[in-house]
Design a protein around this nucleic acid. Structure first.
Length: 502
RNA sequence: GAUUCCGUAGCUCAGCCGGUAGAGCAAUACACUUUUAAUGUAUGGGUCCUGGGUUCGAAUCCCAGCGGGAUCACCA
């Protein structure tokens, strides 16, 4: 055990002193909370008669002692409220230990306390709780970083070291109000999505995280080993192929919030584990999916922000449907002036050279077009825009375009220059699917280590017949970043991956 | 993985022309019955990320390592 700092030692001594006074610093009994700080703050003025006997609990966040009377602040899950404590009221007998020793000395900032009393307004006009009874609910043994704000809103002693904040998210949440807000918004967003899907008849399902063939996406998987079966297993990189099996099985609309795992780089938009919402709907195509996506996102934005707009950095992004649609070829034409629609691989490589985009031999036609798009176009799409009709080579699970040779029925939704969703008319022709897997194998042999593996069971499922289906995947973390105006994925994950502490 | 910046008290930071560590808040003690980040007075608190090197002497200069941020590469 590490040696304790002075402040930690003092808190441990205080803990013992509390016990010595016969007070349990970690009582077991239920504490009958009947109101919250925010409730009092927002409703006391309208209905003061409802706040004559309040009981609330939370952390002690500040303390201003003035002899026999003190003001302090208590913070619960809803916010903060000031409390007023008078020695002779909480210590009606001659024994003044609860005030003089416990409250003034043995309690520390961060301790959980419960108070019973009534609400009143101080001479300076602050709604406060006049305490009649004070109870220790849990002692805190480590000093909490105290973040303070002055009248102009200047922040002092911010707890803002990203490493400490992420490693000790519990502390971050206690002291940084806006962090809590981010995660509440994230949950509102997820709930809004779930409500939308459930209301429309979708069925939420669970599919395997441990897979023997990691399919449905192009990515490097985490590998693990199952002892009893003595086989390698992979943490899923996507759940797509399983959800499609369920469509084969006869469900019309299934969805899953899928925690996916990819053994790749980490940065401010990538965490090794991340959440994707995928859903698959029978008898639909990608046009239908675009309309559904617009409706969904407009509703989600309203659920989180009360309006279909969101402020992201210095931009206001509107989620109001409908969204613009542009083909990937037209997007490239628009931002580079080059028409790539009829080019072969060598011509595309020349284009890349001209645009100063690096290429290598493993890149096929689809990958080259994708590179040009990512380099030159992607960043320009700030408002939600559907990029449609991708080359067949980079979409091995997508149905061929109904009337455009060499393309597939696929769209990606770009917002604020980033891909937020990816959707297609799903490939349900098992023979075509088999050939696409074979193409992937050839890419793999060319050196593309992310090319997909053949999944024979999935092919078998398709052979039994899958109805025409449209599917989509949403990057939930990235959507959360947009909806909460955060630039880093670590800000929208409670516990982002970090190197272990030594 | 590459480049770059950073790592000093519980928190935020100063000190970095090398001379053995400082402020504010937090803590401790005393005083004070209505205060608003911030009452007054006093006090304590640091393997200056780790390990080497240069030097009479290193928080400071050099090298290596560890951890983190940012940018880039890969990817969602």
């Amino acid at each position: 055990m590490q040696s304790l700092s002075e402040q930690e030692q003092i808190r441990r001594q205080s803990l013992q002193s509390i016990r010595d006074l016969g007070i349990d610093p970690y009582p077991a009994a239920l504490y009958p909370v009947n109101t919250y700080a925010k409730d009092i703050q927002s409703n006391f003025n309208q209905a003061p008669e409802n706040y004559k006997e309040v009981c609330l609990a939370g952390r002690l966040m500040s303390r201003r002692v003035m002899g026999k009377a003190s003001f302090a602040e208590i913070m619960d899950s809803s916010g903060r409220i000031q409390i007023y404590i008078n020695r002779d009221e909480i210590c009606p007998t001659d024994n003044k230990a609860l005030y003089n020793s416990v409250f003034k000395k043995l309690l520390d900032i961060g301790d959980f306390i419960g108070v019973k009393g009534y609400v009143f307004i101080t001479q300076v006009g602050e709604i406060s709780v006049h305490v009649r009874e004070l109870t220790i609910l849990s002692k805190s043994l480590r000093p909490l970083p105290i973040v303070k704000k002055d009248e102009e809103g200047n922040i002092y002693d911010a707890f803002n070291d990203p490493e400490k904040r992420y490693r000790m998210r519990y502390v971050d949440l206690v002291v940084n109000e806006q962090v809590k807000d981010t995660f509440v918004k994230r949950t509102k967003m997820v709930n809004a999505i779930r409500n939308f899907l459930n209301k429309n008849g979708a069925l939420e399902v669970d599919t395997p995280v441990l897979q023997s063939i990691p399919g449905g996406a192009a990515a490097r998987p985490f590998i693990t080993h199952h002892n009893a079966l003595d086989i390698p297993l992979y943490l899923r990189i996507a759940n797509e192929l399983y959800l499609k099996r369920l469509i084969v099985g006869g469900f019309d609309w299934v969805y899953e919030f899928s925690k996916n795992f990819r053994n790749e780089g980490m940065d401010r938009t990538h965490n090794p584990e991340f959440t994707v919402l995928e859903f698959y709907v029978a008898y639909k195509d990608y046009f239908w999916m675009m309309e559904t996506t617009e409706q969904l996102l407009e509703k989600v934005c309203i659920a989180v922000h009360g309006k279909p707009e969101v402020q992201v950095g210095d931009k206001t992004i509107s989620f109001k449907a409908p969204y613009e649609r542009i083909s990937i070829h037209d997007a490239i034409l628009k931002y580079t002036g080059i028409d790539v629609s009829n080019m072969d691989e060598n011509q595309l490589k020349d284009v890349c050279k001209k645009l100063h985009i690096e290429t290598d031999n493993s890149m096929g036609k689809g990958k080259l077009i994708d590179e040009i798009f990512s380099e030159k176009c992607e960043k320009n799409f700030i408002h939600p825009t559907f990029i449609i009709d991708y080359p067949v080579e980079m979409s091995p699970l997508t149905k061929k375009h109904r009337n455009k040779e060499g393309l597939v029925e696929r769209f990606e939704l770009m917002i604020n220059g980033k891909e937020i969703a990816n959707a297609y008319s799903e490939l349900n022709d098992p023979i075509d699917q088999y050939e696409r897997f074979i193409d992937q194998m050839q890419l793999s042999e060319k050196g593309d280590d992310e090319a997909m593996l053949i999944d024979h069971d999935f092919l078998r499922a398709l052979e039994y017949g899958m109805p025409p289906t449209s599917g989509i995947g949403f990057g939930i973390d990235r959507l959360a970043m947009l909806m909460t105006n955060n630039q880093s994925i670590q800000e929208v994950l409670f516990f982002p991956q970090m190197r272990p502490e030594k």
